[in-house]
Amino acid sequence: MSNSTNSGPYNYTYIFKYIIIGDMGVGKSCLLHQFTEKKFMADCPHTIGVEFGTRIIEVSGQKIKLQIWDTAGQERFRAVTRSYYRGAAGALMVYDITRRSTYNHLSSWLTDARSLTHPNTVIYLIGNKGDLEAQRDVSYEEAKQFADENGLLFLEASAKTGQNVEEAFLETAKKIYQNILDGSLDLNAAETGVQPKQPMPKPVSNEAKPSDSQCSC
């Protein structure tokens, strides 16, 4: 499951671009950090504008590099962050299950996401801070209904414990990959957020091993 593969960091078939959006303080950067570093950043300062993270994952045997743009939640960054929506294949829309206001703002985030991304962009709704059950302010059922009505994938997750974080990022990629396979995502169209990368030429399995002679050691 880790991103350290024996085939090197450049061996992947596609690049998928993601954005993470949602109100300030819902834990967008912490989700990204948990996904890329498998660590929880307690007490992290608010993001300035945008931050960037990457990780290589595997979907149906294909290596895919995720390029993830983590956006600041504050209003004053909206003009900048909007420019990152363009060409996103996946959008993770995050709210905080312990703060209803962050849930109430989802429709405005969704409007932005829908109007600024490709029609096939996969939008994943994440209810973060799932570990804080005692302070819950939005029920699972309510959010699930909102997600269903708007055709969004949905999970509750916790950047703190790591619960469902991996799942949200991977399921988004699976859905994008599925859209490529069934042809609903046309790779020749502009700004799909998917870049195919020519697969690296693989050394022919059992026969001569030309790579040995190139060893620089």
């Binding site: 504008g49 209003e75 004053r76 960054f77 909206r78 003009a79 900048v80």
Partner: peptide, 13 residues
């Protein structure tokens, strides 16, 4: 100040 900030940010870009 938010509006000033936003415009300054656009100029910096």
């Amino acid at each position: 100040e938010t509006q000033q900030f936003e415009f300054a940010l656009n100029l910096i870009r």
